[in-house]
Design a binder for these strands. Sequence first.
DNA 1: CTATATCGTGAAGTTACTTCACGGTGTAGG
DNA 2: CCTACACCGTGAAGTAACTTCACGATATAG
Lengths: 149, 149
Amino acid sequence: MTDARIAALDRVLEVTVLLGRDMTASLAGEGLTVARTTLLWRLRETGPSTQRALADALGVSARNVTGLVDGLVEAGLVTREPHPTDRRATLVTPTARADELLAGMAAGQAELADQLFGGMSPERLEGLVSGLDEVLERLRVLVPGGAAS
Amino acid sequence: MTDARIAALDRVLEVTVLLGRDMTASLAGEGLTVARTTLLWRLRETGPSTQRALADALGVSARNVTGLVDGLVEAGLVTREPHPTDRRATLVTPTARADELLAGMAAGQAELADQLFGGMSPERLEGLVSGLDEVLERLRVLVPGGAAS
DNA sequence: CTATATCGTGAAGTTACTTCACGGTGTAGG
DNA sequence: CCTACACCGTGAAGTAACTTCACGATATAG
């Protein structure tokens, strides 16, 4: 009876590995890395943010965010603006180029979703999503600091 | 109609993130890292292997395997034995301590599987697994070098 | 106006990767 | 036998993503 659960876990783990590979590869094609892109993606949702806020949102150290932002600045995807009221802080702001790029990535994401789930029977897709939702619920309890999108 | 697919992809992505965090954390508790453990796990399935074979199995460079094995040797989890017939190669062999540790990890894996899927209705679990299988099938086509367990 | 907390970053270190070069070894061809 | 050539593992050097610790600059509470 545990077998089925182990089998399920194996599937999830393998999906994880394959998907990670796919994302890393397709991002590398655009000269980006997963970490930097994650930051950019978050920025798209929240708008210009403090580095501290980004660090908290991503669950990494503030120092690390400094480095990621450095890379994104160099790539012309974000700028560091002075914070209007707090002179200690800097506001990380996406550039127009970042907006374009993110739009393209959203399209790519939709395409991937179609490739993975397109043509799948509605019942099966529904079963998948609801199953994953239940798993997610349990995972969030198990894993501390679950700050995901 | 694409929405449901995007939603599904989001779920998968989030599971990926959370599960990665959980694994990293619980391995860190035992003084291990994900990469080294992956190697050890593969070794458990295949038995003593050449570093080249491990590199191919894990899909990483041979040089990287050298480093990972270095760490595992230092941790007393594997030994480097001379290859019986090919004097160029070394056979990486798990120690008794590694066997114990891997047994414990298998138990931990079963426990995690129970935590994630235990008490889930059989239909839902079945729906999850079959859905993931279909996704995996498509992913393997999309992602090159899919050498997973 | 002083104590304290916070923001970002320099310095230093770890892990996981890569490519390139090279010495030691196996293996086929003449 | 002996010369190519392919292959095994590793030193050297480099990159990316992390970490902690220390520190200067600034905000903020008392």
